[in-house]
Simulated scan of single mutants.
Amino acid sequence: MACPNCGGDLVSFPVPEDLQRFLPGDEPGAGVCRSCLALHPETEPPAEVPDFVALGDAIPEDDAAAIPLLLLVGLLDSLAMHREEITALLERVEGEGVDPLLALDRLDASYGEAAHIDLGRRRRQLEQLL
């Protein structure tokens, strides 16, 4: 499947039930673009969580941290609208032993201008939000 934003390949994954409230709509999964990191709801995700290595070293190896981080990145396009969800996801990622702001720095270094949002600017705004 291709990303509607840039045409890049999507990495689809199931979203655990306790995190599905952070997805738009009622889909059981999501797909993240390998080129721009845009997140899209997925109606038929794979049964197993894929290896996120295709997205680069900035994504944590542990699925319990990787999935909420990817959902967080997907919501960063509107901090004002998703403030509560973003805060909950930041806490979830941090609770899994990953520094979410450092992870965003690494994603920004990896994707730069190719990302669907300015990760560096959003990271600074998140710091102010927190």
Results as ranks from 00 to 15, higher is better:
129 L>I: 07
39 L>Q: 05
82 H>S: 11
15 V>P: 07
120 G>T: 06
39 L>R: 06
88 A>V: 15
130 L>G: 13
109 A>C: 00
23 L>M: 11
75 L>N: 13
102 L>D: 08
39 L>C: 03
14 P>C: 07
92 R>D: 15
38 A>F: 08
46 P>W: 14
34 R>I: 06
43 T>S: 12
11 V>N: 04
129 L>C: 08
26 D>M: 08
9 D>F: 03
105 D>L: 02
125 Q>S: 02
85 E>W: 05
13 F>C: 02
41 P>C: 09
110 S>F: 01
96 E>V: 04
118 D>V: 02
66 A>V: 10
37 L>C: 05
20 Q>V: 09
96 E>I: 06
114 A>Q: 10
101 L>R: 13
119 L>C: 02
74 G>D: 07
125 Q>V: 02
59 I>W: 01
13 F>Y: 07
51 D>A: 13
129 L>V: 09
26 D>P: 04
50 P>L: 11
86 I>Y: 03
106 R>L: 13
85 E>P: 05
62 D>L: 10
31 G>S: 11
23 L>K: 00
65 A>R: 06
109 A>L: 02
86 I>M: 14
84 E>F: 09
91 E>L: 09
104 L>D: 03
38 A>S: 10
58 A>S: 11
101 L>S: 01
86 I>H: 06
75 L>W: 01
52 F>C: 08
105 D>Y: 06
65 A>F: 12
58 A>Q: 05
102 L>H: 11
58 A>T: 04
78 S>M: 07
108 D>K: 00
